[in-house]
Design a protein around this nucleic acid. Sequence first.
DNA 1: GCCATAAGATACGGCGCGTTTCTTGTCTCT
DNA 2: AGAGACAAGAAACGCGCCGTATCTTATGGC
Lengths: 213, 213
Amino acid sequence: MVSERAGSGSATGPAAGPAGASRRRGSELERAILDAVWAELADHGYDRLTMEGVAARARTSKPVLYRRWPNRAALVIAALGRNAPDYQEPPDTGELRTDLALFMASLLHRFDDLPTDAVHGFLVDLLRDPELRAGFTGGLTAEGPVGSLGAMMRRAADRGEINPDRITPRVVSLPLDLLRDAFLTGGAVPSDDVVAEVLDEVVMPLLRSPSGN
Amino acid sequence: MVSERAGSGSATGPAAGPAGASRRRGSELERAILDAVWAELADHGYDRLTMEGVAARARTSKPVLYRRWPNRAALVIAALGRNAPDYQEPPDTGELRTDLALFMASLLHRFDDLPTDAVHGFLVDLLRDPELRAGFTGGLTAEGPVGSLGAMMRRAADRGEINPDRITPRVVSLPLDLLRDAFLTGGAVPSDDVVAEVLDEVVMPLLRSPSGN
DNA sequence: GCCATAAGATACGGCGCGTTTCTTGTCTCT
DNA sequence: AGAGACAAGAAACGCGCCGTATCTTATGGC
């Protein structure tokens, strides 16, 4: 690739055209790096994303990356956090099944502009590291998706649509758990059919079932 | 780094040859290698298991490994397959919940003599490679655990314990899916409490729920 | 204009992969 | 028993990537 020496000035430097090549700093540089991460994810997937590749694409160098993030996973987390669509309010259509279907679909398609294997590989890698794993599951509770699921279910119970006794933490996260598992083991974002199956064969029947049985 | 040369304490030699320098072959060698894999798993966990380490421990060399298995994951699969307890018949106590609890417990504790992180790391790594992933999920169906779960549920339906209409492929694999997910995201083998929760809050109520609701 | 700061380039040591090459022991065939 | 095939075993290689250290040089704050 590039083989020029550091020699003063002219060769590569600012002279190289309108780009001006002025030295980026702070948040401008950071944005360029995270964009590069996103592009590398899209091009090569997660497994083949390397710090060197990111640095090259962002036209910077590895030390710049390591000054900001301790490792690859942290870097990618930052990129995902930056580029992911904003978190959505849980829908409220007046029918739980519809709410759940909409909500799960929005979660599943959050990263549709990245190749599936990039997202999959990243999630898998997340599971490897205990610290990242904890951060991930922690991010789901309360404020996150699990909280939204709980809210939707409680509304449905208030409406009399489902059995309130069935709403336990485990059941609240059930749709999430099942679809995550499907994604992990299937390697592909679960299709609408799978979502429907989960809702119609598992989640809804369970939530509607009477307490005594 | 290896300081131990051939000759010091070769315990695995077939006959008490002098210095035990006899060259192992075929299945004898293979067994020694898989034992070494097991030991490396136990000592260092999966992430830090290296082909070099296995070769060293088995007192052989990398090419010998690569002549038999294409990569690390395949090697470990072979080791797990060899050392795992034999597959169990599904229990039949006359009560589905008990059957399920026993069966899931036996699955979960199948690799208890390995460190948790070794098993976890291995499973996670399995998910990374599409081919291995397919092999893994394929190994669960029909002949495997899923088949047993189906059998237990069908027996329970015949007994009138549960609603036969609830027995669909997705529901059959539900206990497995949930506990696998718990293992993956939790990083630890699910406790008995978790198993009980899954059975009592999800699986059993669902299977018992009437069709109409 | 000076200077602390951080960018950017480069090189390094390390590790582990998967392969290649070559020697040498062992099994089998006649 | 001898010859030859076959695989074990040893050693080294190139590669890729990690994470770090060192140095130069541009830039923004004062």
